Amino acid sequence: MIAQKNLITLFLFLIIFTSSATFLDNSIEPKSLNLHKEQTLSHFRFYWQEKFSGPKATSIEIVSPVPKYNTTAKFGSIRAIDIALTIGPNMSSKVVGRAQGVYVSASETEIDLLMIENIVFYEGRYHGSSITAMGRNPIFSKVVRELDVVGGSGHFRFAKGYAELRTISSDPKTLDTAVQYDVYVYHY
């Protein structure tokens, strides 16, 4: 009897959920969201300035690797980031935005990161808008690394594209790193 009541409850829930999902699947006019027919392809170049050292570190470990996997790759570690994006390769260059998010060490054998970040712009026409990027970043790869642009906010709603990453410098003692980002993004 109890199993039958649970089955009926589940059945009713599925009917309600399915009808709600169908109700929400209405098409809308792109103009109602201020979307133009044509998309713009933009290219942005900026420099990621990650600081591991000092009182103003921009990358902090929030989950340490499990001792079983305590390898040089730090498999399983998670870092939160709030990294300055500058107009030039030097840390003293003008800050034009921030990269905010997390990355996870996703390999047991090499430093291969799963990155999820919002690229938030502080300057110019795109002030307050952001681009969301994610993907695999094998940081010691000899080829250019790529992240997928999967969306954004403000001027970058419905954005798609990719970001190319090239390490410009890395201090072996502090691990502070500068990475050139070339972001190619379609947006309205």
Score class of each variant (00 low, 15 high):
L33C: 07
Q39L: 07
D182W: 08
I16F: 15
P138N: 08
L41C: 10
A57H: 02
F46E: 01
N34H: 13
K160M: 11
W48T: 09
E146A: 12
F121E: 03
D148T: 15
Y126W: 14
S105E: 13
R145M: 02
H127V: 10
S59P: 01
V63K: 12
K37G: 13
Y162H: 15
I60W: 04
S77V: 08
P67A: 03
D176Y: 03
I78W: 00
S107D: 01
F23H: 09
L175Y: 12
G152F: 00
A57R: 01
V96L: 12
Y122T: 11
E108L: 11
K5N: 07
M115P: 15
I8Y: 06
Q39P: 00
H155T: 06
S105R: 05
R125E: 00
V185A: 03
E38P: 00
S141R: 08
H127R: 04
V183C: 06
F140A: 08
V149L: 07
K74G: 10
G101P: 03
S129D: 03
V95L: 05
T132M: 05
Y126V: 05
N26D: 03
V143W: 00
S93I: 14
R166I: 10
L41Q: 09
I16D: 05
R98F: 11
D182L: 06
I16H: 13
L14T: 11
F46V: 02
E146H: 11
R136V: 10
S32H: 08
L113P: 11
S105T: 12
T177F: 03
K173R: 09
I83R: 02
Y184T: 03
F17M: 12
R45D: 01
S32M: 05
M91W: 09
P89D: 11
V144P: 13
I16P: 00
P55M: 05
S32Y: 04
T177S: 01
V183N: 02
K142W: 11
T132F: 13
P67Y: 03
F156S: 08
R145A: 01
R45P: 00
F23L: 10
G88V: 03
E164I: 07
Y47F: 15
L165N: 04
A178F: 00
E123C: 04
F52R: 02
W48I: 12
K5D: 10
K173I: 10
G128Y: 06
E110P: 08
H43K: 15
E146Y: 05
I111R: 11
F13Y: 13
G154P: 09
F158E: 07
F75G: 02
I139F: 08
E29T: 08
A84F: 08
Y47L: 10
S93M: 12
M115I: 15
T22W: 14
A73I: 04
L114S: 15
E38F: 11
Y186F: 15
F75C: 02
L114M: 14
Y181G: 05
S59W: 00
D112I: 03
K31E: 15
R145Q: 02
T109H: 06
